[in-house]
Structures are given as C-alpha cells and as structure tokens.
Nucleic acid binder design. Sequence first.
DNA 1: CATTTGCGCAACCTCCTGGTTGCGTGTGAG
DNA 2: CTCACACGCAACCAGGAGGTTGCGCAAATG
Lengths: 95, 95
Amino acid sequence: MALGDTTRLSLLSRLCEGRPLSISQLTEGTRLTRQGVTKHLAILERAHIVAKRRVGRESQYSVRPESLSEASDYLSRASRQWDQAIARLERLLEE
Amino acid sequence: MALGDTTRLSLLSRLCEGRPLSISQLTEGTRLTRQGVTKHLAILERAHIVAKRRVGRESQYSVRPESLSEASDYLSRASRQWDQAIARLERLLEE
DNA sequence: CATTTGCGCAACCTCCTGGTTGCGTGTGAG
DNA sequence: CTCACACGCAACCAGGAGGTTGCGCAAATG
C-alpha cells in the first residue's frame, strides 16, 4: 500500500503545492537521507501517483492529478477491507 | 492490531461457535504448527479477546463475548484511519 | 580544466511479523 | 509404572519495510 505510509503522504502533500520538486528539495524538511526519500519516491512512482522527469542533473517529481482519484479509490478499498472485517465480526457476534 | 490478521480472525470464528477448544483442536484445520497457533492465541489473549483456561493437560480457549464490541470498536478505528487518509488526500486535491 | 552538486546503484542494517523446530515437563490412560 | 499426549519455552529462520552508507558518474559552475 503505497499511501499507507505517513512519510509518503507528506511528500505527496509537498508535491501537491503544484511546482515540481527535485529529490534534494524534497529531502529538505525531512529528517531522512536523500536515499531514503528516493526510495519513497520510487514507490510513489511505481504506483503511478507521481511522475519523474530528468531536467539537467535534477530529477523533478510532480504529482499526477489524474492519479489522485485512483489513489483515493485505493484508500477506500483499504478502508472497505476493514469494514468487511468488522462485518464478519458482527456476523460472528450474532450467531 | 490483533485482528488485522486473517489467521487470527479465522481462529476467532472457530471459537465463536461456542464451545471452548484446545490448542490442538484449533490447530486441526489450519496448515500451521501447534506453536504457530499458540502464538496467535497468545496475541488474542493479550488483547483480551479470548480467554485461556487450563483443564487437565489441555489449554482451552474461549471467546469473551463482552470483548467483541471492543474488538469491533478497534476495527472501526482502523477503518477510520484510512478514511482520514482519504480525507487528507481529497483536501490536497482541492488546493 | 578542477570542483561542486544532484543523482543512481548496491550493499548493508534494524526491526517487526509470521512461522517452525527442538526440547523439556506435566497430565492422563492402560 | 510406563507411555503417549498436550502443552510451554526458547531459539531460530525468512521476508519485507524503512533507513543509511559508500561509491561512482554526469551535469553545472567558475
């Protein structure tokens, strides 16, 4: 679950401000290493939540707005799984 | 999260049939070792979802009905966390 | 040109979860 | 008494997540 991590959610929120940011820029403001941030960005990219674009020597990341609805779907599916666990439990309770 | 595991939920459902079951009885029907089941039961016991009672050479486990509502609360809190993640995401979408 | 900056890659580390194996002990059955 | 069964304890293992370190390379800077 790419969005189950608060670090990634906060990186995503930085990107949601609009302008693309490089890895180093995204690293500022976190207590992580550049490599740590890189890994999280790779995960977000694999999930098609974020896009990478090489500009000169920088890797600029930007959010893919069209993907946010998918992300939202993903999260609500996750939420629904818990709802189902509750439902199962409540069925058990009735028996 | 004691109930976030499908193995534990299925053990719990076995116990919800009513009669107390020993570890060996609970192990039948799973593809796990007795020790694996024992660990899961210990987790359920620590979470006060299940009660252990030594009867002769057996350890009989039974579900604590009064705890199931707490368990349900717990699960809905988990579900709510995902809902909050969705909400956060949707706020970001608006900005 | 030399130096700095921004990266990518790979190895490594720690912690947690789910799971197994080995062994010792108490209990019940014959 | 003897033996098999049910269990507890502890050590161990594999995999994945989150993170860091070390190194090398390409682009910008002066």
